[in-house]
Design a protein around this nucleic acid. Structure first.
Lengths: 203, 203
DNA sequence: AGATTAATATGATAATCATCATGCAGATGG
DNA sequence: CCATCTGCATGATGATTATCATATTAATCT
């Protein structure tokens, strides 16, 4: 058909954005090149005009996904009066987050598979985790070590809550993690308490 | 060739056992029927004499894997003077556990993928998690809710520790979780302290 | 021992996969 | 306005997949 360079950039970004969502939903190996291109309104043949290989696209999609995660989390906490441990727990451990993995934390969505991927993927994960430990920790009033532990807990709880059949059990996993974490870090009680609404929602 | 019923049972168990290990290493979709049968010393054709479908084998392998997990964990804590929170944390959060997923916790190995599987798989996961909450919690002196939170933390930490490139960072994730969890549940200090050796090792 | 049964091997099928070669159509540069 | 370049479509390739039909061969039963 013939496409402008602006079109190409737009197409490229759409492919990456769609891949970021679908990978969180179906896993890094969960869908093929053709399916992603089709959802972007293109055919599979043009794929290699954008990426050197499928692994290359996975890396770009993960980078994009992590950036999305950070922005969404920041906005969601902003809606709860700014960053705080309480706001973080409420946002991250919400049933809405559990039920919409495509819009949720990429770490929790694909970590098990990432553990088996190459160093390129692992470096992206490491950067994301370090961002939590270095950038987010002080905003929540936590040390790096505390932040790593809190992240492990919430990500683990989210993943486990998605693996059980019974929804009551799933809720207990999320609620239990929130309640226990609050008890662990109960030094500085805050006053404001936003109503428990849904997480990671629209801007 | 012709095989006795005892042979068939033995072959069946070997297939399931091999699958349990390989699924933990490569993921539930990480290797095909042919590869598993080959490792069991058989060819792919005989597969459907043992299982109705690949999903059927996945379910049997998970059931077997969870049973293995429970027994190995019990033995490993036994080697540290019996079940206790300290023993559990030392065993579960060891670098040896992180580095040998094939012999380690199945929850941590494949939870992200299990979240996308059908109810059959989810029921197996739920049973496993309930076993932690009901059977193991009292042995560690924890409530069910505390046990769920501890399980979320250790599983999350193990998964995350496997996703990073730098081994020092990986160690920090494990150590941080152990240190912080100990601080959270520091009511009843025990006396005995086994040397930190490797986890989930031979009987 | 001979007949039957059944566990596994051989081989085929159809689907799906990543990757690439070719060609077209339109955008870009003169 | 013409020539070139290129983003994408069409279609092919070879590898891998789960599944199954048939053949083989030894264990089991009578």
């Amino acid at each position: 058909m013939g496409y402008s360079q602006a079109q190409k950039k737009e197409n490229h970004e759409r492919i990456v954005s769609i891949a970021a969502t679908r990978f969180r939903e179906a896993g890094l190996d969960g869908l093929g090149v053709a399916a992603i291109m089709k959802e972007a309104g293109l055919t599979h043949g043009g794929f290699y005009a954008h990426f050197g290989s499928r692994d290359d696209m996975v890396a770009q999609a993960l980078e994009f996904a992590f950036q999305e995660d950070e922005e969404r989390l920041s906005r969601a906490m902003g809606r709860r009066g700014g960053p705080s441990l309480d706001a973080f727990l409420e946002v991250y451990l919400s049933p809405a987050h559990r039920d919409t993995p495509g819009q949720g934390c990429t770490l929790a969505a694909v970590a098990c598979e990432a553990a088996r991927k190459d160093e390129t993927v692992k470096r992206l994960f490491q950067n994301r985790i370090e961002t939590y430990a270095i950038k987010l920790a002080p905003q929540l009033g936590l040390t790096e070590e505390q932040m790593l532990m809190v992240l492990s807990t919430v990500a683990g709880a989210l993943v486990l809550s998605r693996t059980v059949e019974d929804s009551a059990m799933s809720d207990r996993i999320l609620e239990g993690a929130r309640h226990q974490l609050r008890a662990c870090f109960a030094e500085q009680k805050k006053g404001g308490k936003a109503p428990p609404s849904s997480m990671y929602s629209v801007a």
